[in-house]
Amino acid sequence: MECQAKDLKVVTNGKTLLQNISFKIPNGAFVAIIGPNGAGKTTLLKSLAGLLTFTGNFLINGKPSLGLLKDKKRVPFSYTPQNFSIPVGMSLGEYVMLGRASRSNWFFGESQRDYDAVNVALERLKLLPKAKELVTNLSGGEMQRATLARALAQEADFLLLDEPTASLDFARTIDFLQLIDLLRKQLGLTVLLSTHDINSIIRFADYALVLKKGKNIHSGNLNSILQKNFLSDLYETKLDSIKDKTGYPIFYAKNHHNQTSPNSKEMTLLGSTD
């Protein structure tokens, strides 16, 4: 599904959080939403998910989106916040089944169709053997996959993920992004993912939405923003880059004396080679 935003604006308690947001995302794109802290990445994702009201037009396949709250039967978006809850005493199966909440019967509960969707989602993420385990006993990586399983159980067309890799180590980050990319290709999903980890996301995403101070300063091909001057301006700090063996750039911050720290460079290189 293709989506298009025209002049979106979000105002909460008299404060403008987002304005002049316009973009067009093709069907099945992997979109990286990047920008410094406070740029409005989370606000944008929440608005698209229908959790915040916005003015302007947001079109899906050319038709206005009513947002999640007003269109529960057809759930186009699945939103996973950065700080998701891990409920005490809840099994993984129950957790993923919550993804079916808007579809299952309000009195008689879940149908076989709901169980099938949950089973398929758990199977895809290799979590089926752990269905009975409490979510509090899962590792960080497994829990992150559990949120993805819940999102798949929703059978939404768009995955909105707010900094899903923020708490994962380097190897888990790459694994997780690889998994999302695979699911996107298999299921035809459109993924919008906010992140600060530019060095990892450039290996998977093909499209970028760049936000700064609540405004959209770039939307389009990801490769076109991979320049140290553009990113230095975006993050308001001097950045430099080198290329790894596969040709991807690796960005790193220069220190305050405007010199590259040999140690930090070495650490970035070590951490980025996969």
Partner: peptide, 22 residues
């Protein structure tokens, strides 16, 4: 009892609950 499904959704954060249709 009718709202018990909503109470289960509330065991998540309010944003998650809303985004799942709660």
């Amino acid at each position: 009892y009718v709202f018990s499904k909503e109470l289960d959704l509330l065991r998540l954060s309010e944003d998650e609950s809303k985004s799942l249709g709660g």
